[in-house]
Amino acid sequence: MTTYIIRRLLWLLPILLMVNLLTFTLFFVVNSPDDMARAQLGNKHVTDAAIAAWKAARGYDLPLLWNSEASGWSMLSQTIFWQKSVQLMLFDFGVSDAGRAIGADLAQRAWPSLWLALPSFVLGLLVNIALALLLVMFRGQWLDKLGLVITVIIMSISGLFFIIGGQYVMAKLWHWFPISGYEPDGDLWRFLLLPIVLGVIAGVGAGVRWYRSILLEEADKDFARTARAKGMSQWQVMRKHVLPNGMLPILTGVVAVLPLLFMGSLIMESFFGIPGLGSYTIDAINSQDFAIVRAMVYLGAVLYVFGLILTDIAYAWADPRVRLGDD
């Protein structure tokens, strides 16, 4: 098991390397530091000297890959590639193009993201599974059919409509929630409840259908049929056989995305003014702050890889043979 995980780790490292190389090429070969400087310097009295000073302050005045003016080790290290990309590999995020320390901002913004994403995810999961169970229990009957129709309809509506509509009706017309904002000192739930609920609603269409198909597969297996034939009630079959067996694919799916929750929700955060990593990303894109975009790309890749490893562990843990031993 340990050697397996180490092997996987070694396999995943090149991926991070590649992601890093990819972003480096994208951002430094195609985009020039002069552009970044002008984008950040504003619009009054921007002179060449000012641009040069800006680049020097952020280390963008170095050569890309090889510093022929330096000597020895610094021929490699005094380059943009080393200063920006290799440092990034070591989780030294540096300073954003706007001039703030990215590391400090990330640490500060991860929490709001998590506070929004984790409850949304967990609640969504519970609601989706519960509804899917309900549909499976009433399979082929009108409730199931109605449920399927409703889920297709929800699936066919862009999430933006739920957010725009929900914010308009519940916050603006009914005064139930603050329209937007985030206040960790006060009662946080007042600010998070609306985005969480809307997030759950927007995801319920695809989610319920997905879990329904997983559970249906289990419900059609022989042991479930036998149990039903033996006179177990529908509810008991669900609880004793379908749900526990269905949990397996569900759980392995969950652990893969769990680390990515840190990245936050782009749309939710920017609609509801939650200062998390999602809105950080969107702001960085809008202001073309490539230092932040690069940092977020790398962070995302690391979390994704972490998710892959977690999935592997989950699979190993949930291996049928291991389970038999547990029973």
Binding site: H175, P178, I179, D187
Partner: peptide, 17 residues
């Protein structure tokens, strides 16, 4: 939640109380 809600007149105050 309910207690803290009823303790205040408005629900949508976006600042610390």
């Amino acid at each position: 939640c309910i207690v803290s809600l009823s303790a205040q007149a408005t629900w949508n105050n976006p600042y610390p109380r």
